[in-house]
Design a protein around this nucleic acid. Structure first.
Lengths: 339, 339
DNA sequence: GTTAGCACTCTCATTGGTTGAGTGCTAACT
DNA sequence: AGTTAGCACTCAACCAATGAGAGTGCTAAC
């Protein structure tokens, strides 16, 4: 009647159970293991081992005459091994898949979220860390009908923002172009903060039209604000419907509404210091996420700043595959955005 | 035993049934009408009228002891009256709601889709018509690390595209800036097609680095291709889960997968010549959309070109409200994008 | 033309019985 | 001691039967 220790065979059986459960989402019975995985052992033996594994907290039974289901503790063991032995290797297929569909630098993040979700068939989350001290690269005014103009600011990191402002009706395309040139010449290389500060001084020289200055100041401050906070993008949120654990619409809705709360998402993603992180159900603390897992990989953007790509899905997840897919796409992102 | 004609009272009752059904999604019984809507009539009388309405094809019974459910024909009648009497008025609240959340001209369409879906709580679809003969307004090269540069093209309509290209390592920021200025000077005002044609001639003058020219040509051709096709954006697709008719996950998934087929969506949206259009379930021909309705309003972009904003939801829909919301947002869009 | 009354129908929820999967335990086997 | 066959036991899932409730259609009276 001693507490039975966990040995190699138990571990093999546990892994088999996890593998099967990940595949089918159905409780796994002793017969199944005996037939598909450990063919040299009888179901009775497996039953004994399973009983031990349950006592150790690695397995659970939905009810007495059902098979076993891996517990969070089991996944944790499995994942730890995965992370320990040899680490995570990049999935070149995932990387390629992603690289091929980035058409636009301006929305790499969106593309990444979409690529991850398409590739893994899970819900993807991509976090872009805040960037202070963005520097202006170009400033452009484009004529629009009826005394309006499109103001575009591009930073040295390739971030692009635009807005419509009102300008004097007497300004034609050439006039706007001249102003654009002058502004770009003077403001290029400055940080957004500096731009805001400097604008006051210029307002007289440009020709009395304070609205242009005001518009630039507004857009610059909007950009500064936006870039000073971590942002997060979700892709393929409805992939969750592919999984039987969310065949209940209420559950699916609850899941989706968590995705709307960006702050929570950022907290979930950015918790870890490591390159890879797997948080399994209850480990997250949030009761509404108790039967989800979050897998993340970090990527490098600029010196020291790290962003995260991740996947949210049911606890039952092929962690190995997901990790290497994320690693591949994270690697590609680092190359595109990193210093 | 004559075919009973449809009179004013029948119509009132029909409307009451529709109203109640839109609210509750439950078959409406004669008692309900007698108590909540036509308090001066007994349920028996209502029953007689309902029987007539059923014979006329305006009502249907899920089964013999259930209440009645409006048929597509009933909605059609209702909607036709709605459209005839006084037309659709813009909902200023919807308009305001939308206007306040357009921050970026570059993605008005996305903002519109999001605003519509948030405001109406249905799935929103926004179609942007193709635009031929886009003219280049600015062309900009921004230095990036390791012999790369970000190429940005902005058109006179405010469309912005960017891509990363490789450039000679010897080109620094100033060099790129000079090239940008030269290119903009020569190419501004040209159509994308012209730009592609002209590029060959310049390649020698710029300094032998064919990759820049090639990059611009590629991006221009990509833009031309993109802008020459109608594009469609979906917003709030998971709003569909709010409605009991999609409490079955399979149905919800089928619905969502229709939204992925952009060509079908475009066909659905752009069918009508009128300012407003309501297509009810079977009227669309697509069997997978048999119990959906599509409501659209058109908006003006440039001279003659029309785009569409729309909502897709269950046939049971408050058409009046949806129409005026779309009208409001469509109006705002026309003002922003129209000539 | 309207209404009360009543028989009728059909869904939905509940109950009880049956089936099948899967376990735990014991006793025999290696 | 570890492994296995065998068997009793448990419980979810399925099915049929039953009863309640909602709503109708029809008839006869107002």
């Amino acid at each position: 009647m001693e507490i039975p220790p966990i040995d190699a065979r138990k571990e093999r059986i546990l892994r088999a159970i996890i593998d099967d459960y990940v595949l089918t989402a159905l409780p796994v019975g002793s017969r199944t293991i005996s037939r598909k995985y450990e063919t040299s052992l009888s179901s009775a033996t497996i039953r004994n081992e399973m009983s031990d594994l349950e006592e150790l907290g690695y397995l659970a039974q939905p009810h007495v005459s059902a098979g076993r289901v891996p517990s969070p503790k089991a996944y944790r063991l499995y994942v730890n091994e995965l992370l320990a032995q040899g680490g995570v290797k990049q999935d070149p297929e995932a990387r390629e898949f992603f690289s091929q569909r980035v058409r636009q630098m301006e929305d790499v993040v969106t593309s990444a979220a979409q690529a991850i979700s398409e590739f893994t068939r899970y819900t993807a989350v991509v976090m872009m860390p805040k960037q202070l001290d963005l520097r202006v690269s170009t400033l452009q005014l484009i004529p629009m009908p009826r005394g309006a103009a499109l103001l575009v600011i591009i930073t040295d990191t390739g971030a692009i923002r635009d807005t419509v402002i009102r300008v004097s009706e007497s300004l034609d395309g050439d006039g706007l172009y001249a102003i654009s040139r002058m502004l770009t010449e003077r403001l290029a290389g400055r940080t957004l903060q500096e731009v805001q500060e400097m604008l006051g001084a210029y307002s007289r020289q440009i020709g009395g039209d304070g609205r242009v200055i005001q518009g630039i100041a507004d857009l610059a401050s909007q950009m500064a604000r936006q870039s000073a906070t971590d942002t997060v993008t979700v892709g393929g949120s409805h992939n969750i419907l592919n999984y039987p654990e969310y065949s209940d619409v209420e559950k699916a809705r609850a899941f989706l509404s968590v995705l709307e709360e960006k702050e929570k998402l950022i907290a979930l993603l950015s918790g870890s210091e490591k390159a890879f992180s797997v948080r399994i159900g209850p480990e997250m603390g949030l009761p509404e996420m108790a039967d989800c897992s979050v897998v993340t990989a970090s990527y490098q953007v600029g010196q020291g700043h790290r962003g995260f790509v991740g996947v949210i899905g049911p606890t039952r997840m092929p962690y190995g595959k997901v990790l290497s897919a994320l690693s591949g796409i994270g690697g590609a992102l680092s190359d595109m955005l990193g210093e």
